[in-house]
Computed example of a mutant assay.
Amino acid sequence: MSRDDEVIDWLLEGDPAVRWQAMRDLTDASPDAVAAERARVAHEGWCPGWLARQRPDGTWGGGGEGEPTWRFNLDILEIIRLLGPDPADPEVRRRIELTRDLVHWPDEFGSPPYFEGEVEACINGEVLSQGAFFGEPTRSLAERLVSEQLADGGWNCEAPQSSRGSFNSTIRVLEGLLAYERAVGGWEPAAAARARGEEYLLERGMLRRRSTGELVDEGFLRFGWPGRWLYDVLRGLDHLRDAGRGTDPRLDEALEIVRTRRGADGRWIAENAPPEPGIGEVEPSGEPSRMVTLRALRVLRHFDAA
């Protein structure tokens, strides 16, 4: 048995949220078998505990000193989205409808409904991903993000004060636009903006300043899950994989970094996703992570095959 086969077996021993994605991306499992495993996600393992954190008012926590409710809404819904339960599952649907109908952003943002987003591109990219995944795609939010793309192809939460894109903001918007396109069956303005944004990453080799070639941030070399607001090269590569991008010499350094971060046991460690106060972790930081390993293996398999 090869090392990859041993690691895949380890993934398949994990939570249903890991198993269904590993079956889909790393094995020859049938679509019916993958769907059957995915149907377990909302009811077994990690996901039910996160779903159970929703309150009767539709919010997901917070409200204490230093605990803004909006952050809990954003972070917990993102964790649930990444676990990947069937969005049509009645339990999932019930909770998303509560969020849609009852949850609003703070008054400082005009108190819009949650899935309409607020004012920062980085936040709104994540909200667009969530709405699209959970069956609540918001055209006005997609239009806003397309209109806010900067001249260099990226996005930045500090715009318009900053006219330069940010890796951290750009990856969240790219993920949101791709999810939106899939949810609505394609929308050319989003596809065009996403292509420019992906080129923003590629022009910088996924991790370097275009102007000097210097590494932007040492954190880009450490992988975490869920990424929250943080970019790393594995997250960027996994987006390009998901978008169906093929090989490109500008990816060579980033792919080699993924290979060199692999442990002797064939697994990858979660290093770059510090828990938010009051929210917690899915997997412990500093230990082999099934979610990071799943993402790394499918990235390498995709680009090696391409």
Rank of each mutant, 00 (worst) to 15 (best):
E108Q: 09
E136L: 12
R100C: 05
V103S: 03
P106Y: 09
E108R: 13
P112K: 10
H104F: 10
A121D: 09
E118S: 15
E108N: 08
A121P: 02
W105S: 01
N124S: 10
Q130T: 00
Q130N: 09
R100I: 03
L128V: 02
R100Y: 04
F115N: 01
Y114M: 00
G125M: 10
G110I: 11
L98I: 03
E97I: 11
E97K: 13
G125T: 08
I96D: 05
G125Y: 02
W105E: 02
Y114K: 01
P106H: 13
N124Q: 11
G117T: 01
I123L: 09
D101C: 07
I96Y: 05
G131V: 06
A121R: 03
V103D: 01
F133Q: 02
S111E: 11
E108A: 14
A121E: 10
S111A: 15
I96E: 02
E108L: 10
A132K: 07
G131N: 13
F134W: 10
E136F: 10
E116I: 04
E126W: 08
S129P: 03
D107C: 08
P106N: 12
I96G: 03
S111Q: 08
G110M: 09
P113W: 00
I96M: 15
V127M: 08
L98G: 04
W105F: 04
H104I: 11
A132G: 12
V119Y: 10
G135K: 08
L102M: 14
C122A: 07
G110C: 13
L128S: 03
G117M: 13
D107Y: 12
T99I: 03
E108I: 15
P106R: 13
N124C: 14
F134K: 04
V119N: 12
H104P: 01
C122M: 14
I96L: 12
G131P: 06
D101S: 14
P106D: 12
E97S: 12
V119S: 14
C122F: 00
E136S: 10
E136K: 06
E108V: 14
L102N: 03
I123R: 13
H104M: 09
G110Q: 05
A121F: 00
E116A: 06
C122T: 10
I96F: 00
E136M: 08
E118A: 15
D107H: 08
V119M: 00
Q130K: 13
F115Y: 09
F109V: 11
E97C: 01
G125A: 09
